[in-house]
């Protein structure tokens, strides 16, 4: 924590004069404009479209799109899938990410090499990742089936992506793999910022390894945990490419998630306001999920 001191009338603690404040805003104006164009405009457009006010044949305020959502079995199923998908994937990211972060934080040989290896899944674009997993889960030449057959765990190749439950499971597995490094990096940064002396004090106070984890590691990691939980939840809720290229939401709509459905409605069926309404629902939910993160960053405790 740093304190700022007033030296003469130079002030940098946020209580500067009006003129100083204007100058500050001038500096961020270009970036702000970019944000408005790139983020603000599409968001506003989607919002207006969902109420049938923009880029539609007969503009006029209507809640029709939202009403239809409630009765749409495919939408409800996709919503359910999204929730299951996000909960399972994010939990596994936290568990796997924390475990690997703990390993990488230990005194091991070739540390940098292991770190690079651990980050690799994240360097793969999600569409490509989806394709790779699709090949791996393939019925005949796929590596998953060939391993299963060789080890005699099955006698017949499993049609992973062709059966409703299995396809969804396969997607969850694939994304659990692809996305953990992000969480791991945040948690590793958190681990590395814990002062060594706290562990030493705990050691002298009589802590076992497990107790050090409980009383030193976990409490110190709390903020990083919240941050990765929120960011990863938002990230995974918005996921598209992985599922799109792996199953396309199928078979049927068994592995479909909201982003995919919204995309289909908007760009394939041209149900503009319907697709936009889904996006708005998703964005609203995500906004509330990210509130704890926003509050943490406002308090500058990151």
């Amino acid at each position: 924590m740093t304190k700022t001191h007033d030296i003469g009338d130079v002030s940098n603690d946020g209580t500067g004069t009006m003129r100083d404040n204007y100058k500050g805003y001038l500096f961020i104006l270009p970036a702000l404009l970019m944000l408005v164009v790139i983020l603000g405009f599409p968001a506003l457009a989607a919002f207006l479209q969902s109420f049938n006010l923009m880029w539609v044949a007969k503009p006029g305020f209507s809640l029709g799109a939202y009403r239809a959502l409630v009765d749409d079995a495919e939408f409800l199923h996709s919503l359910f899938n999204t929730v299951v998908f996000v909960v399972v994937v994010v939990s596994s990211h936290l568990v796997v990410g924390l475990s690997i972060a703990l390993l990488l934080n230990m005194d091991i040989k070739f540390k940098w090499m292991w770190r690079v290896v651990a980050i690799l899944p994240w360097t793969m674009p999600d569409v490509i990742g989806g394709l790779v997993w699709r090949f791996m889960f393939d019925t005949l030449p796929g590596i998953v089936n060939s391993v299963l057959l060789r080890t005699h765990l099955t006698t017949e190749p499993v049609d992973w992506l062709g059966q409703p439950g299995l396809a969804f499971f396969a997607v969850i597995l694939a994304e659990s793999w692809r996305g953990y490094p992000y969480v791991m990096l945040i948690l590793l940064a958190g681990l590395q910022s814990i002062p060594r002396q706290q562990y030493e004090a705990a050691e002298l106070d009589g802590c076992s390894a497990l107790q050090k984890f409980m009383y030193v590691t976990m409490p110190n990691l709390k903020h990083m945990f919240i941050i990765s939980l929120v960011l990863d939840t938002v990230w995974e809720s918005r996921l598209f490419g992985m599922v799109y290229s792996m199953t396309g939401g199928g078979p049927g709509y068994s592995s479909q998630i909201l982003t995919l459905l919204s995309y289909k409605q908007y760009f394939q069926f041209f149900n503009v306001s319907y697709g936009a309404a889904m996006a708005v629902v998703l964005a609203t939910v995500l906004f509330f999920i990210s509130l704890p993160y926003l509050r943490l960053s406002m308090r500058q405790q990151i």
């Binding site: 004090a201 050691e203 106070d205 009383y215």
Partner: peptide, 19 residues
């Protein structure tokens, strides 16, 4: 082991448990 030596240490940066 350190925890069995019955020794207490005060560190330069205090190393209090922050939570």
């Amino acid at each position: 082991r350190a925890k069995e030596r019955d020794i207490a240490m005060v560190f330069q940066n205090y190393a209090l448990y922050p939570h």
